[in-house]
Structure formats: C-alpha cells, structure tokens
C-alpha cells in the first residue's frame, strides 16, 4: 500500500516523503528517498547498529523504525552531526586515532558516541563499552575506537575547563 505524503524532520529540516510504501523503514526512506546514504544498511534486524540514528535524542536502529510513524519526531543522522562542512569533534578523533578501517560501521558508531558524550562527557571504559555494544565492527577490534572516544572526551573536558576558567 502507498502512504499518503508525509513529512519527516531530518537534521533540523523538513523533508516531504511522497509515494512511499507503508512498510518502508526509516533507514530505507533516509537512503533511497531522501538520498541521505550515510546511515548504512547491513542486517535490517537491529543486530549491527550501522543504521543508528537519533530519534528525539535517543539512539535507535533506523531499520526498525517504521518511517511513517516517525512523523513529528526529531531525527538526526550522521549527516547532521558536523556543523556545515566541518566534521564533528568525534569524527576528528576517529581520524586521529585511526579508528576507521573499512568504514561501514563508522557512521553508526559516530552517532552512538556523540549521544553518549552528550549524556556523559567523561565516561569510564565500561560505560563506553556498554554504549557501543550495539555497534558491530568486524575490522578494528575496537581498540582504536575506544582510543578515539578517549581523545574526544578529553578534548571536550579541556574545552569545558577552559570555558569555566574564563
């Protein structure tokens, strides 16, 4: 069945979705209809986390969100993390730590880590491991990803200390 046209708020902009099937997942609509291909499609069953987006500020697997049910919610994808053409501090930390190998899991991890550091700017290692437990990486063994989180959280801490001392 074809849905009536609906509007999704993605990365602080409204996008009209026309002629979509009722059964389409948010991931499908993001990639195939809105041409936001940063969120990756692998398992389509909520196991791998490569499609992770923020839905009203919480991490979810966009493959398990019915797109038409996300009307009126705030959706943030990997494309919405940086400011304009600048990459985000966590993306920069991934570059510095060499935390990207094949890169397929990276967008989902970046969204997850961004949300985690917003909630807890100085997480201990167990918190980090639990936070990223739904994002599978088959390449890196996670060592450099954990290192990237340490770099990003350290930078955020220095930044806030600087601002406090001003």
């Amino acid at each position: 069945m074809i849905s009536e046209t609906y509007v999704l708020s993605v990365n602080r902009k409204n996008h009209e979705v026309a002629d979509a099937h009722t059964s389409e997942s948010l991931l499908w609509v993001l990639r195939e209809r809105l041409e936001l291909s940063g969120s990756k499609n692998a398992c389509e069953e909520g196991e791998c986390g490569s499609c992770t987006v923020l839905l009203d500020g919480d991490v979810v697997c966009s493959c398990l969100v019915l797109a038409a049910s996300a009307v009126g919610r705030e959706i943030i994808t990997i494309e919405g993390l940086g400011k304009g053409d600048e990459i985000s501090d966590i993306q920069q930390a991934f570059v510095e730590a060499g935390a990207v190998q094949c890169g397929f899991c990276t967008p989902g991890l970046l969204v997850t880590i961004d949300q985690m550091l917003d909630a807890d700017p100085d997480p201990d290692e167990l918190t980090v491991r639990e936070a990223i437990s739904g994002n599978l990486c088959r390449c890196t063994g996670y060592g450099r990803i954990l290192e990237a989180v340490r770099i990003a959280s350290g930078n955020r801490k220095n930044q806030s200390e600087k601002e406090d001392s001003k």
């Binding site: 069945m1 059964s23 997942s25 389509e44 909520g46 493959c63 398990l64 038409a68 049910s69």
Partner: peptide, 23 residues
C-alpha cells in the same frame, strides 16, 4: 506497533507487509 523491534524485523524480511498500522 509498539517499539517495532520484533515487528519491523518481519517486515524487513518481507515476511509481513503493513497496510493499516496503529502506533
């Protein structure tokens, strides 16, 4: 439809197709 974590797995597999849904 509640959280979708079971239902959407079936939908994505093509095992179930949705027409009318109450979220």
């Amino acid at each position: 439809l509640a959280g979708g974590t079971d239902l959407m797995v079936q939908v994505n597999k093509g095992a179930s197709s949705l027409e009318n849904v109450v979220d």
